[in-house]
Nucleic acid binder design. Structure first.
Lengths: 214, 214
DNA sequence: TAGATTGTTAATCGATTAACAATC
DNA sequence: TAGATTGTTAATCGATTAACAATC
């Protein structure tokens, strides 16, 4: 029924949560839509609309309750029992991801890492055990993994994606610079650092040029 | 004058280039819009529109020339003399980025890395020299850096961004999970892995649920 | 030629924003 | 109360897609 909620809204809710967490630490009890808006770089109307979608409500005099909003967003975004994540590819990027997410959240845990290179398997990196590719299916099922992270070279990514989907995974975070072809019931988010870097470079140049014109 | 070109188009052109590079390696001379479309997960009309914006043209009988398109996209996306990039933050992620971009492109080079931790400076990592923060301004000017990559913890990111902007940088790729506040003439692209991971987890759950309903 | 694709305009779609009555 | 914000609908905006004449 809440199928209509787009991934953009989900992303913004994630951002609001982070800001609210910071506000809660600072001891703030209430927050207005425009405060969240300026911190998340969206409009106040957008914030109100997102919170309306969420079913959260505020008060014209005080704004929204920080703790209430945090609870509402958590109830919406998080799986009650958390979700387990598997990482494939323990190269530089893979290890950075393990470090980045280690202990960051109790709801999303990278519980297993996999690599084709035997030198990288059999150890524990940033608290995560690394297995060979032959252990993939068994470990994913044992740990009830629902999210896969692909951090392998471009030419291996499609095969790995198919392998992960076969085990039942329905969400992939893909760092390989290729477009994966997947069934419609699998969500893929691409983080394409090559494209991002090129885009930033182009836009930087445009901004530098427009500066010269002044 | 080509100010109207959005960053979305820039991103797609980057993707087309990658696909075209692969096609060129395979020896393909010509390509139809629908071939590029299926590989880049967009519509054929979208591809034609993007190429029209670029000023490239094709032929109803043969399609587009692979090499011609590559040249056109390069002429559009790349700075003739290349652009230099500076990385700030030589942690796990920073080192992964150095490895990822090392030797990948002759047009975009990470020419200097900076870190506040003296243990990380004074060495060369994946071909890139690492400096202390005090060398930032001098090195950026010496190397004529135009793009900055921020790979520091969230609480240091805003300060670093301001520092980079002071040196004249107009494009930032930000991996820190904060929204940077920057002047309008600075382009920031956020790669927020926390938000991405949460979104994938949510969508994976939705897809798993809709699967159960069948 | 017949059939398919390009180039480009018009129509559609979805998301964002503006607006304002209701509320505190 | 007066002033500001919330909740929500209507208007706007921009990007995507459909459509089709021109072209090979």
């Amino acid at each position: 029924m809440n199928k209509a909620i787009s991934d953009k809204v989900i992303g913004r809710l994630g951002q609001y949560r982070r800001l609210l967490g910071r506000l809660a630490e600072e001891g703030a009890r209430f927050v207005f839509s425009h405060d969240l808006a300026s911190m998340a770089r969206v409009t106040a109307a957008q914030v109100r609309r997102d919170l309306m979608v969420l079913g959260a409500s505020g008060n014209p005099a005080k704004g929204y309750s920080v703790s209430g909003l945090l609870e509402d967003i958590e109830a919406f975004l998080d799986a009650p029992d958390g979700q387990n994540v598997a990482l494939v590819g323990v190269g530089n990027l893979g290890r950075a991801l393990l470090a980045f997410f280690a202990g960051r959240s109790t709801k999303l845990r990278i519980v297993a890492a996999f690599d084709a290179n035997p030198e990288k398997t059999g150890r524990v990196i940033h608290g995560c055990r690394c297995y060979g590719m032959d252990a993939l299916e068994a470990e994913i099922q044992r740990e009830a993994v629902t999210v896969g992270v692909i951090a392998v070279p471009a030419d291996a990514a499609q095969e790995i994606a198919e392998h992960l989907i076969e085990t039942g995974i329905r969400g992939l975070l893909n760092f390989a610079p290729v477009r994966l072809s997947v069934p419609a019931n699998v969500y893929v988010e691409d983080i394409d650092m090559t494209v991002s870097m090129e885009r930033v470079a182009y836009m930087a140049r445009q901004n530098a040029v427009s500066l010269e014109k002044l």
